[in-house]
Design a protein around this nucleic acid. Structure first.
Lengths: 229, 229
DNA sequence: ACGGATTGTCACCAAATGGTCACATTGCCT
DNA sequence: AGGCAATGTGACCATTTGGTGACAATCCGT
């Protein structure tokens, strides 16, 4: 999953190393050597993720992190702190400032990319190939297989995408328009009521394993996937 | 939450980009390429927010902004100005005319939507999708769920909107007219007394969890949501 | 090309919802 | 206490919304 990552790090060697690894894993790397520079770049590009070194010239990393999390516009950007080894108390303080994760130097490229992936996953869940599971209903995007309590469930392509979207965005109400945009793609024109029909087909397919009640109607708003009553 | 946003921008590419992103974030996008056209659309649709380009053919953006803020009908509509980069003095003048915020081009979709959300929250808290909680009564616009001390509360669409408005504007008395404007929308004509009936329905729905006394009658004025007796 | 699967629409139905009225109740003032 | 105005409340009916089966067009593998 391609993401734009801003690396705030003053040591050129480390900076390049990270940038290289980011590109290797399919991301776009932006770099800044100071908080001031980073600040400007954030406003311009609104990156999907920020990697922030603990120690920076001028404004310290922790100070900068606090500033980012205080600003309503940047607050929602995931933040990973890079700390020197063994500074355990720093980790604590880092998480207090609202960092989503931290990585201690030296780190392996694999570890870094794993953490990046984990943090990004929280943002765009349906983009990943991860298996999803809700109340005994499991969907595997890779094998394209759905099982209810182990028993296999047969779905058409549209119902599969619909269920995948719902399962990666559970509990949340989606209007018919949102579903059309996210499941059908936003360039095709189909009737809103068509969603109803596919919801119906999805429910029917889930009936054998009693999972049809996961797909809930919210009158006047849309549909929701939830295990709660 | 879903808001109707009017985009006044003469460059088709930018206009489309913005409209696309608005739809992505769940808003309804209207577009106008000139101040004259925008003027007509505003009268017709009364958008929740206006995005106004600085540079427009004919009447300039700043001139139009001033006009909007001088008119009693449009004065209260939040306004975000789109300015070219680095025109710092323009920002100042823009804010002087009553713009609520400004965004410098080029901007990222994320920044724009963050600012839109921030402006809407300031002007119309019930348009945002933040959770609200008052005295054990919780309402979540995203999942479209209401719980009283954890127990789920069942509401019809109108009662849900009514409660949402009251909870985002607590401790304040709202006349029937104000409630009609904010909950029903100000273009529909319904009897004032209809509000009473929906207040009644809302109270009944809140009875099971003893939250019905939050909805208070202020004789001669209207209704209020408050945890105080 | 054939046959099954898939998909978008439609028509029809049941249920939910919303607005209004009529009447009951409450509160406030003299 | 009496009377008036404001509000509460139940019922009714029209409208809206969503569920559902049927159907025709299209797609796709054989």
């Amino acid at each position: 999953m391609a993401a734009t990552v801003l690396v705030v790090e003053d040591e050129p060697a480390i900076q390049e190393l990270i940038a290289f690894n980011l590109k290797q894993t399919g991301h776009v790397a932006l770099t800044a050597t100071s908080a001031e520079l980073a600040d400007r770049m954030i406003k311009e590009t609104m990156p999907d993720l920020i990697l922030l070194d603990w120690m920076l010239p001028g404004m310290s990393g922790i100070e900068f992190a606090r500033k980012l999390k205080a600003d309503a516009f940047t607050k929602s950007i995931p933040l990973i702190m890079l700390t020197a080894r063994g500074e355990e108390q720093d980790k604590v303080r880092g998480l207090e400032t609202g960092a989503d994760d931290y990585v201690t130097k030296p780190f392996s490229p694999r570890e870094l990319s794993a953490r990046i992936k984990a943090v990004l996953r929280r943002r765009a869940p349906q983009m990943t190939d991860d298996q999803v599971e809700v109340a005994g209903l499991a969907l595997d995007p890779i094998t394209h297989r759905v099982t209810g309590n182990g028993a296999s469930v047969d779905l058409g392509p549209t119902e599969f995408r619909l269920l995948h979207f719902l399962m990666t965005h559970p509990e949340r109400v989606h209007s018919r328009t949102q579903l059309l945009d996210n499941v059908w793609g936003n360039q095709v024109y189909v009737e809103e009521r068509t969603v109803d029909v596919h919801i119906r087909r999805l429910r029917r397919a889930l009936e054998p394993t009693q999972h049809d009640n996961l797909v809930q109607t919210v009158r006047g708003s849309g549909y929701r996937l939830s295990h709660r009553v």
